[in-house]
């Protein structure tokens, strides 16, 4: 399934969508950046509440399909524009990480 279709199903708020057609597979949840670097896999959806600028580089290098900011976390405008510039799909949601993950478990086949 594409990131765009997933985002529609989960009713995510798009903050930066540079490649909505990218296929995702699997999910990683975490806020400690070196854990994400060590454990997230390519093409994962990454769910976090960490919202500082460094998440953009981490998403790029770990090669995740998109970031979802859970629990209504917001980002500064420069994080959003950097994500756009670096080609990172970034969404936000009022849902908890658990709610997002259980919805993803139903659609990620």
């Amino acid at each position: 399934m594409t990131v765009h279709e997933m985002a529609k199903t989960l009713e995510l708020t798009p903050l930066s969508v540079t490649d909505g057609e990218r296929e995702f597979s699997g999910v990683y949840i975490g806020d400690l950046l070196s854990w994400v670097m060590g454990r997230a896999k390519s093409d994962n959806v990454w769910i976090t509440i960490m919202s500082n600028i460094n998440i953009v580089a981490v998403a790029s290098l770990a090669d995740v399909a998109c970031i979802i900011l859970a629990e209504g976390v917001t980002v500064d405008e420069n994080v959003r524009t950097t994500a756009e510039a670096k080609g990172i799909n970034l969404y936000s949601s009022e849902k908890t990480a658990y709610e997002l993950a259980s919805m993803l478990a139903r659609i990620d086949v």
Binding site: L33, M50, N54
Partner: peptide, 9 residues
């Protein structure tokens, strides 16, 4: 608080 310092680097 920025998400570093897990001792995993």
């Amino acid at each position: 608080s920025l998400g570093f310092g897990a001792g995993m680097g």
